[in-house]
């Protein structure tokens, strides 16, 4: 008995490995998505080990050195320095920390309720439950997410935590819609009918039968959204509703640098490029994932 079971386990493991390598094959067919993934890995690595790899880790917070203020890019300060003498390269790397934490927390807060509401609304299609949930999401979606996040953030005191709350508050609706659409079509599949007929519980049907079939699109949308959340977060910081100085957030840095354009162009341009790079990387990765999960449109 044990022998047979271990055989079966080995068997299933090799299967899993094969499906992984097939996924990698589909993914790597698109060289751009591999590039995106490498850039992302570098950024994540840099953000995690920021205190050790940046040349001036103390520049990340409140630090002044007016002698070195507003220096153009050079070999010491490769992105130049800002108006109070802090190294912009160091601050960009630390800025990535905030951006990544922001997007991870926002998605972690908004995906679970979005997915659950979407599943419930899709399952109870045609009843008042669906109507209530979907009309609420419609209201959220009708208002541009940035404007809504702006309104919420303006009500709360500006800091990273409230910024996250504000964005999460609007973001869940997109997952609700995505999962809702998928659930309504999956509910017509025979395997769901079969589970209903045999008397399986609703939680089983929703989370064991339907949800696993939604995972591909959810993961892909999540990757694409990481970039979008960073934009919204940075925009909030840019207008002063997010991370407060002297902390180094990319949006705050652009806001500060923008005042000194065009003479001290580096103070705004490098953080801006940093945002572009990370968003681009997430989008390239997301495109690659679409190929892995064979998704037409998310």
């Amino acid at each position: 008995m044990t022998n047979r079971n271990s055989f079966i386990n080995i068997f299933s493991k090799t299967k899993r490995r094969r499906s992984f390598s097939r996924g990698w094959y589909n993914f790597s067919r698109n060289p751009l998505s591999v590039v995106g993934m490498i850039i992302l890995l570098l950024i994540i690595f840099a953000a995690i080990f920021a205190p050790y790899i940046t040349p001036f880790p103390e520049h990340a917070g409140a630090f002044t050195n007016f002698r070195e203020a507003s220096k153009p890019p050079s070999s010491t300060y490769i992105f130049g320095t800002d108006s109070i003498g802090r190294d912009i390269f160091t601050r960009v790397i630390f800025g990535y920390r905030f951006s990544l934490i922001l997007s991870i927390v926002v998605l972690a807060l908004s995906i679970p309720p979005g997915v659950i509401f979407g599943l419930i609304a899709g399952y109870y299609q045609g009843t008042w439950i669906e109507i209530i949930i979907m009309r609420i999401t419609d209201v959220f979606i009708a208002v541009p997410p940035f404007v809504l996040a702006l309104a919420v953030a303006a009500m709360l005191s500006p800091n990273l935590f409230n910024q996250m709350m504000a964005i999460s508050f609007v973001w869940w609706t997109w997952y609700c819609r995505l999962v809702y659409t998928m659930t309504t079509s999956l509910c017509h599949e025979d395997f769901v009918t079969e589970a209903k007929l045999v008397g399986a519980s609703k939680t089983h049907i929703l989370f064991r039968e339907i949800l696993p079939n939604c995972m591909g699109p959810i993961l892909t949308k999540m990757t694409l959204d990481m970039g979008l959340v960073i934009i919204v977060g940075s925009s909030l910081s840019f207008i002063g509703l997010g991370v407060q100085p002297p902390k180094s957030d990319l949006g705050t840095m652009i806001a500060e640098g923008a005042r000194r354009l065009p003479s001290e162009w580096w103070a705004a341009v490098f953080p801006a490029i940093a945002i572009i790079v990370v968003i681009l990387a997430f989008n390239l990765l997301g495109d690659g994932l679409k190929d892995v999960f064979n998704i037409e449109e998310v």
Binding site: E189, D190, F191, T193, G199, A200
Partner: peptide
């Protein structure tokens, strides 16, 4: 059902599929 492609959940393995009615009842 007619089409076993649609009546078996592609994300569940054979054991999980057959186990469900056994578990429920």
């Amino acid at each position: 059902f007619q089409d076993p492609g649609s009546s078996l959940n592609p994300r569940r393995n054979i054991k999980q599929i057959i186990e469900l009615p056994v578990k429920v009842h």
